[in-house]
C-alpha cells in the first residue's frame, strides 16, 4: 500500500474505530468502563434521599398515546386463557425470604389502599411517555408478607417469554422496593391495564429506566443475593445483553 496522506488518515481512522471495538471486547477494559455506570449508581444513591420522589405531572401533560415497551402480547395458551378469563384466576405470589407467603388475586390487589401518580416512563433507547398509573404500594404487600431480615432484593418473575425463549424477570433492592412511588400498577390513565402495558399487574419503579418496570408479574421473590437467581445479574436484559442492573440514567 502506498502511504499517502489520505491512506494514512483512513488507516488511522479505521484503527481508532476497530481499536475501540477490540478494547470493548477486552474483559479487563470492560470492567474499567463499567466503573462509569457504577459511579453513576453510587453518586445517585448518595445524593438521593431514600424517599426523593420522581417528578409527577398533571393530566394535561399525559402522552396522547403511551407507547408499549417490551412484549406486546405474551405468547402461550396459559396467558391467553387468563386474558379470556379477565385474569380472575391470576395470582400474584409473594414468597422467598418472607414470613407469610401470599397469593393475591387482581381483585384483592385493587381493594388494597392505592396510589395514583402521573409519571414519566423513560426507555433506555431514549423515548419518554407520561401516564397516570394506579396501583398498590409494594411496601404494603411486603409488610403483609413480612420480609425476613436476610432479604435484600426483590425479584419479579414475569409471564412473558422473550425472543431468546427465556421468561422476563427483573429485580430491585429494598430502597426502591420501599419507595413511596414503587407500586404494583393495575390501571393506566384510569383504565384497567391493557395487555400491552402488562395486564393484570406491572411494577412501577419511577427513578429507573423502563426495562426495570416488569410487566405481567406472577411472582415476587425476596432473596438475599442476586447471583444465585437465573443468570445472576438481576434481570433479563442484564443477563443477556449487558445492561446495567441499576438503570438510573
Amino acid at each position: 500500500m502506498i502511504l499517502t496522506r489520505r491512506n494514512l488518515l483512513l488507516t488511522a481512522g479505521a484503527g481508532l474505530v476497530t481499536g475501540c471495538d477490540t478494547l470493548g471486547q477486552n474483559p479487563t477494559f470492560r470492567e474499567v468502563l463499567k466503573l462509569g455506570e457504577k459511579g453513576n449508581f453510587a453518586i445517585q444513591r448518595s445524593l438521593q434521599q431514600r424517599s426523593a420522589l420522581a417528578p409527577e405531572f398533571n393530566r394535561t401533560q399525559i402522552s396522547p398515546i403511551f407507547r408499549v415497551n417490551g412484549t406486546h402480547v405474551p405468547a402461550g395458551e396459559a396467558y391467553a386463557q387468563h386474558t379470556a378469563e379477565k385474569f380472575v384466576n391470576w395470582r400474584l405470589r409473594v414468597e422467598g425470604l418472607v414470613n407469610r407467603p401470599l397469593a393475591v388475586s387482581p381483585a384483592q390487589l385493587q381493594q388494597m389502599p392505592k396510589r395514583t401518580q402521573i409519571t414519566r416512563h423513560d426507555c433506555v433507547e431514549g423515548w419518554s411517555a407520561i401516564g397516570e398509573w394506579t396501583g398498590a404500594p409494594l411496601k404494603l404487600l411486603l409488610d403483609a408478607a413480612g420480609l425476613k431480615p436476610q432479604a435484600r432484593y426483590l425479584v419479579f418473575h414475569c409471564a412473558d417469554r422473550m425472543g431468546t425463549g427465556e421468561m422476563y424477570y427483573e429485580s430491585i433492592d429494598l430502597i426502591d422496593a420501599l419507595h413511596p412511588q414503587t407500586i404494583l400498577a393495575w390501571a393506566l390513565n384510569g383504565q384497567p391495564l391493557s395487555v400491552g402495558h402488562g395486564a393484570p399487574v406491572r411494577l412501577r419503579v419511577e427513578r429507573q429506566l423502563g426495562y426495570k418496570h416488569a410487566k405481567y408479574v406472577e411472582r415476587i421473590e425476596a432473596v438475599a443475593d442476586l447471583s444465585t437467581v437465573r443468570g445472576g445479574k438481576g434481570g433479563y436484559w442484564e443477563d443477556g445483553s449487558g445492561y446495567q442492573w441499576h438503570a438510573g440514567i
Binding site: C20, G24, G39, V124, W237, G242
Partner: peptide, 24 residues
C-alpha cells in the same frame, strides 16, 4: 454508519458503558 459509532456494530449497552465512563 458503523465507522462513526462506538462500537461499530449496534450494541446499546456497550455504547452506554463507553459514554458514561468517559462522561466522568
Amino acid at each position: 454508519p458503523g465507522w462513526a459509532t462506538i462500537p461499530t456494530g449496534y450494541n446499546l449497552a456497550l455504547a452506554r458503558e463507553w459514554h458514561f465512563a468517559f462522561a466522568w
